[in-house]
Amino acid sequence: MKTEHPVNRRWTMRQRDWAVVFWIAFLSAAAGAFVLFGLVNPLDMVNNWADQFDIGMKLAYGLAFAFLYIVCLMASALTMFMIRTGPSRGHATGKGNRAIPEVHDPSQSNPDIDGEDWK
């Protein structure tokens, strides 16, 4: 039977990028949360204002992880954006980018323009 999409169920590049952003941010936040809360009690980190809400240990861990996850997501997403919108592969060796502008002595074929520090 003929299918409409020969590579059905494969993700587009954009979908793959976003999946990587979400997953790597999650792993980073999880690793960060493990290390951080191995050393610090999250309830000690907040000011007295949090005491009014009487947040429990589990909620404190959850909120702290959510915060770390959001920060990691932002860093991850911005990195993806910078890479996607940046110069293409091979740019550093001169492939694919614009030609370097031609520069010469301004007085060349312009007798009324002095070369100033070209001399």
Binding site: R98, I100, P101, E102, V103, H104, P106, S107, S109, N110, I113
Partner: peptide
């Protein structure tokens, strides 16, 4: 444009604005 290329020479990012 007299093609003196001074616009390229003063550019701090080294581009040709004429492009």
């Amino acid at each position: 444009c007299i093609g003196c290329t001074l616009c390229v020479q003063v550019c701090p990012t080294g581009i040709d604005i004429r492009e």
